[in-house]
Amino acid sequence: MGFKLLSKLLVYLTASIMAIASPLAFSVDSSGEYPTVSEIPVGEVRLYQIADGVWSHIATQSFDGAVYPSNGLIVRDGDELLLIDTAWGAKNTAALLAEIEKQIGLPVTRAVSTHFHDDRVGGVDVLRAAGVATYASPSTRRLAEVEGNEIPTHSLEGLSSSGDAVRFGPVELFYPGAAHSTDNLIVYVPSASVLYGGCAIYELSRTSAGNVADADLAEWPTSIERIQQHYPEAQFVIPGHGLPGGLDLLKHTTNVVKAHTNRSVVE
């Protein structure tokens, strides 16, 4: 069995187990497998329904001669939608809004960016022009300005110390501490036991640490421990890039980060 097929099978099995364990909360999309990078042309966006009122959005972007996937989250909030992270750029984010209108038909009224990198804030200006209120932590807003990236308009308070959590509509926002970046936030959907790890969490097929220019490698494993301790009931975990899975993604990420750190020390 090929690795790609095995990865998709694991996603399907995880979703099936969740649907059985929580039949009222989960209505997993039966329309197909989780979209992969090879299936999404740059400039297009796919939506994948995880649970009743919960979707991931998947886009792709060219970077350094390669094409990478990027995940975000959409959560229903009454007759409105909360968006977590842009679709990595203005063109993708405009396509995301169009796809949401086509498939869901509810307005996106608020959006949260989970850290300051372009795959999370690139497209904020498109959201703002569409009347979406954009939010991020003060740290993310400051770092985005320093980096020359787009800056969300509103500040999220109460997320300055490791372990801080605040309720934001249908989700809980959690600051686990520094990891992929010093400002990275985690998003949890309690009604569906869905954990969105953003770039602080890796997919299972990833074996290298990737972009760690703004990471705190020493603190990252401790931050992941905080996530595990705060959300032990999480059933569906979405990484910032690639295929979702279960809580095993947290341990896998820790292993990859520690291996990278150990290699760096040896070198």
Results as ranks from 00 to 15, higher is better:
Leu81Ile: 13
Asp248Trp: 09
Ile104Tyr: 02
Pro69Lys: 07
Tyr135Phe: 06
Ala259Ser: 13
Gln49His: 14
His57Pro: 00
Ala94Thr: 12
Arg46Gly: 12
Leu249Asn: 04
Asn211Ile: 12
Gly43Thr: 07
Ile238Glu: 01
Phe168Arg: 02
Ile100Glu: 01
Ala179Arg: 02
Arg76Tyr: 11
His117Arg: 00
Gly89Asp: 05
Thr36Phe: 12
Val237Gly: 01
Gly122Ile: 06
Leu96Ala: 07
Val265Asn: 14
Asp118Val: 06
Gln103Ser: 14
Pro190Ser: 05
Gly89His: 02
Ala218Pro: 12
Leu217Gln: 06
Ser62Phe: 06
Ser191Trp: 08
Leu13Asn: 14
Ser181Cys: 01
Ala144Leu: 09
Val67Arg: 11
Tyr231His: 04
Arg206Ser: 13
Gly65Phe: 07
Ile100Gly: 01
Pro176Lys: 01
Ile58Met: 10
Ser70Trp: 01
Pro41Leu: 09
Val171Gly: 02
Glu203Met: 00
Thr109Tyr: 12
Val45Ala: 11
Val54Lys: 04
Leu173His: 04
Val146Lys: 08
Asp29Ile: 10
Ile201Cys: 02
Glu219Pro: 04
Asp119Thr: 01
Gly78Thr: 14
Asn71Gln: 07
Leu13Val: 10
Leu47Ser: 02
Glu267Gly: 14
Gln235Lys: 05
Gly148Ile: 07
Ala15Gly: 07
Val146Phe: 15
Leu127Tyr: 04
Thr207Ile: 08
Gly197Phe: 01
Glu150Phe: 05
Ala209Pro: 12
Ser191Leu: 09
Glu101Val: 11
Asp119Gly: 02
Ala59Pro: 02
Val126Asp: 04
Ala234Ile: 06
Thr60Ile: 05
Glu157Cys: 15
Asp64Val: 12
Ile74Pro: 01
Ala111Trp: 04
Glu150Asp: 13
Ser155Trp: 09
Leu204Asp: 14
Val166Gly: 05
Leu24Trp: 13
Tyr48Ala: 12
Ala87Cys: 00
Pro23Ala: 14
Ser205Phe: 07
Ala234Asp: 00
Val37Met: 09
Ala25Trp: 13
Thr86Met: 02
Ser113Thr: 11
Ala130Met: 15
Glu33Trp: 11
Tyr68Ser: 12
Arg46Cys: 08
Gly158Asp: 14
Gly177Asp: 03
Asp77His: 11
Glu203Val: 03
Leu204Phe: 05
Ser191Tyr: 06
His57Glu: 01
Gly131Tyr: 06
Asp79Cys: 08
Pro244Phe: 05
Ala165Gln: 12
Pro23Glu: 07
Ala90Glu: 12
Leu159Thr: 05
Pro244Cys: 03
Thr140Asn: 03
Leu106Glu: 14
Asp216Asn: 08
Asn92Val: 02
Val166Lys: 09
Ser193Arg: 11
Leu249His: 00
Tyr135Glu: 01
Pro239Gly: 04
Thr109Lys: 14
Tyr196Asn: 02
Leu83Arg: 01
Glu33Tyr: 06
Leu47Ala: 05
Asp52Arg: 08
Gln49Pro: 12
Cys199Glu: 00
Tyr34Gly: 11
Gln49Thr: 12
Asn92Pro: 06
His252Tyr: 04
Asn149Val: 13
Val126Phe: 12
Glu219Leu: 11
Ala15Lys: 11
Val166Tyr: 13
Leu217Tyr: 09
His117Val: 00
Pro239Arg: 01
Thr254Trp: 12
Asp216Gln: 09
Asp119His: 01
Met1Trp: 04
Val124Ile: 10
Thr86Asn: 01
Leu13Asp: 04
His154Leu: 06
Gly148Asn: 11
Gly65Pro: 08
Tyr68Asn: 14
Thr114Phe: 00
Val42Phe: 15
Phe63His: 14
Leu173Thr: 02
Ala25Arg: 07
His260Trp: 10
Leu73Asn: 01
Arg167Ala: 06
Arg128Cys: 04
Val212Trp: 04
Ser208Tyr: 08
Val189Leu: 08
Ser223Trp: 02
Ser70Val: 04
Ala130Phe: 14
Arg110Ala: 15
Pro244Asp: 02
Val256Tyr: 02
Thr254Cys: 14
Ala19Phe: 15
Ser30Glu: 07
Ala213Cys: 14
Ser31Met: 11
Tyr231Gly: 01
Phe116Asn: 05
Asn149Tyr: 12
Ala133Gly: 08
Ser264Ile: 15
His241Ile: 00
Ala209Gly: 11
Thr86Leu: 01
Ile224Pro: 00
Val257Gln: 03
Asn211Arg: 07
Leu5Gln: 09
Val266Arg: 13
Gly2Gln: 06
Pro69Gln: 15
Glu39His: 07
Tyr175Leu: 05
Ala213Tyr: 14
Ala136Trp: 03
Val166Pro: 04
Ala111Cys: 12
Leu173Asp: 00
Ser139Met: 07
Leu81His: 01
Pro221Trp: 06
Ser155Tyr: 11
Ala21Phe: 10
Gln61Ala: 12
Val121His: 00
His260Pro: 12
Arg76Pro: 03
Gly177Ser: 03
Arg206Gly: 08
Pro41Phe: 08
Gly169Trp: 03
Val108Pro: 15
Asp52Cys: 04
Thr93Val: 00
Ala179Trp: 03
Pro107Phe: 09
Gly246Lys: 08
Ser162Glu: 10
Asp52Ile: 05
Leu106Gln: 08
Tyr202His: 15
Leu96Glu: 01
Asn255Phe: 12
Glu203Asp: 04
Asp164Gly: 11
Val121Leu: 05
Val189Tyr: 06
Ser208Trp: 07
Ala215Met: 05
Leu195Ser: 00
Ile84Ser: 01
Ser155Met: 14
Val121Ala: 03
Val37Arg: 09
Val256Phe: 04
Leu195Asn: 00
Asn262Arg: 09
Ala144Gly: 11
Gly245Tyr: 03
Leu81Ala: 15
Ala218Leu: 15
Val42Glu: 12
Ser181His: 00
Gly148Asp: 15
Val42Met: 09
Ser223Ile: 05
Leu217His: 06
Val189Thr: 04
Phe168Cys: 03
Phe116Leu: 03
Gly131Asp: 06
Ser113Cys: 09
Val28Met: 06
Asp77Glu: 09
Ala25Gly: 10
Arg142Ala: 14
Val42Asp: 15
Gly210Arg: 07
Gln103His: 15
Val121Gln: 00
Tyr12Glu: 05
Tyr135Asp: 01
Tyr48Cys: 11
Pro244Glu: 03
Arg120Pro: 02
Val121Pro: 04
Phe174Gln: 03
Asp64Cys: 04
His180Lys: 00
Asp29Glu: 11
Phe168Ala: 02
Thr114Ile: 00
Asp164Ile: 10
Asp248Leu: 07
Val124Ala: 08
Ala144Phe: 02
Ser264Asn: 15
Ser31Asn: 07
Leu143Pro: 03
Ala192Met: 11
Leu249Ile: 05
His230Pro: 04
Thr93Lys: 00
Gly131Cys: 04
His180Ala: 01
Thr14Gln: 07
Ala136Met: 04
Ile201Phe: 15
Tyr12Ile: 15
Trp220Asn: 00
Glu233His: 11
Ala25Lys: 13
Glu39Ala: 10
Thr153Asp: 06
Pro221Phe: 10
Tyr68Lys: 03
Glu145Asp: 08
His252Cys: 01
Val132Lys: 02
Tyr34Leu: 09
Ile74Cys: 04
Glu150Ile: 05
Gly197Tyr: 01
Thr140Cys: 04
Val266Asp: 07
Ser223Gly: 08
Lys91Leu: 14
Asp64Trp: 13
Ala15Thr: 05
Ala87Phe: 00
Val171Lys: 00
Val189Glu: 07
Asp248Ser: 11
Thr253Met: 03
His154Met: 14
Val28Pro: 15
Ser161Gln: 14
Val75Thr: 07
Phe3Ser: 07
His57Asp: 04
Val266Asn: 06
Asn255Glu: 11
Tyr175Gly: 00
Tyr12Met: 05
Ala98Asp: 05
Val146Gln: 11
Pro107Glu: 14
Pro176Thr: 01
Glu225Ser: 06
Asp119Ile: 01
Ala179Leu: 02
Ala15Tyr: 12
Ser181Leu: 01
Leu97Val: 04
